[in-house]
Design a protein around this nucleic acid. Structure first.
Lengths: 216, 216
DNA sequence: CGATTAATGGCACTCTCTGCCACTAAATGA
DNA sequence: TCATTTAGTGGCAGAGAGTGCCATTAATCG
């Protein structure tokens, strides 16, 4: 009745931080993806991944309710990067200019040694149906984040069909561009490939929005 | 060396026709979807579906390599209908006019008593992650069909990025519109809902193409 | 009818994933 | 320091998903 958010006399062992948990997931994810690439997804068992990551099988299944979700932490990194850029989109700028100025899918910051792995995963989703499914579900979750940004931008409710459509179209374009750069980077990531990716993405996204902005 | 397509002295029992096989799949599909709706996907076992459909479990797994693919035959019906309309798109017409004139997501022809089921499935994909994944994979397959039509239309190779992007964007728009009509039809399908669907879809698709057609 | 090929069903088996419980780890308060 | 409390881990058993193999049945042709 009274308190809703109060009562904080915590007692026992505190839960691990969300960051720590994410880190653990990412760690397992790396092992899993390596094995997936080496042997294929079907041929890689949960037991094997768990062993490689140094946890019990039971714990592994707690971190990843399905085997294919192992790719999630790595892929999320990529998608989150884009969402962050999008959220930082200043109102006065054209989207295309903002993307050209800000978006770098990873390289220069060097904050990320997983780029190769991420692209490897994207490539794998074309061979491994189970991974493709997981990938698409993940992208759709990103679509919601996109919709969120767009709704604010257009000053419309999240449920507005216009918002959903723009988000879906942008997401689709992004998917194509990503697949494209992944394919172009089979023999290693090059700066040109990444810049081409940004340019292609920026222009396509802009064109989609231009078409869709003629609402009603 | 010599013959490649010749040698047809068939001997034993002929394989069942593709149509017959599809019909069988559709039949099982109907039972499965009913059970999914009644009990949830997780709570419905392969054995149960097989029993309901009157085949052995082994045969069931031969028809559907994964449990979730049971929704495929029904959903494919819907997607195929759209693709057929698209393929019949005459070169001289604007897409939006063609859609308005031709596309009816099912009702009048009455050739289809599965509409309710299809929409039910689409709604279910929002509650059941496994179904969502299957749904998205399916939609992506439809995207390829779309790309096919668009490539011919634009006289570009299937691999052209412009083609991929247009197909992806159209597909995305279509997805939103479909989700929308499914949601609007919870309490039964109405003609208004379906016409609204067509209208929304037609105008959104047109807008996307308009934006994207400014190539390069 | 016998030969041939396709489809089905039954069985055993592996792998995925879950529930349950015991055990260890980290915090608090006495 | 020790008891208490809460969180995370591991082990074990078991249901269900899905596969390989083989025997059986169905359909076609000579």
């Amino acid at each position: 009745m009274t308190d809703v958010v109060s009562e904080k006399p915590r007692r026992g062992r505190p839960p691990v931080s969300a960051e720590q948990r994410q880190q653990q997931r990412l760690d397992i994810s790396r092992h899993a993806v390596r094995l997936f690439a080496e042997q294929g997804v079907a041929a890689t068992s949960g037991e094997q991944i768990a062993q490689a990551a140094g946890v019990s099988e039971r714990t592994f299944w707690r971190y990843f309710p399905q085997k294919e979700s192992c790719v999630e932490p790595l892929l999320t990194k990529m998608i989150d990067a884009f969402c962050a850029v999008l959220r930082a989109w200043p109102p006065e700028l054209e989207l295309i200019d903002h993307l050209r100025a800000t978006y770098s899918p990873v390289p220069d910051t060097s904050s990320d040694e997983d780029v190769e792995s991420v692209l490897e995963v994207v490539r794998m989703t074309h061979q491994e149906p189970a991974l493709r499914a997981a990938y698409l579900v993940l992208r759709e979750r990103a679509e919601d984040a996109l919709a969120d940004v767009l709704a604010k931008r257009l000053d419309l409710p999240l449920t507005a069909v216009e918002v959903k459509i723009q988000a879906a179209a942008m997401s689709a374009v992004l998917k194509v561009a990503t697949d494209d750069v992944a394919h172009a980077s089979v023999e290693g990531v090059t700066t040109e490939a990444l810049e081409g990716h940004r340019e292609q993405m920026a222009s396509a996204v802009s064109r989609v929005l231009r078409g869709l902005s003629q609402l009603r």
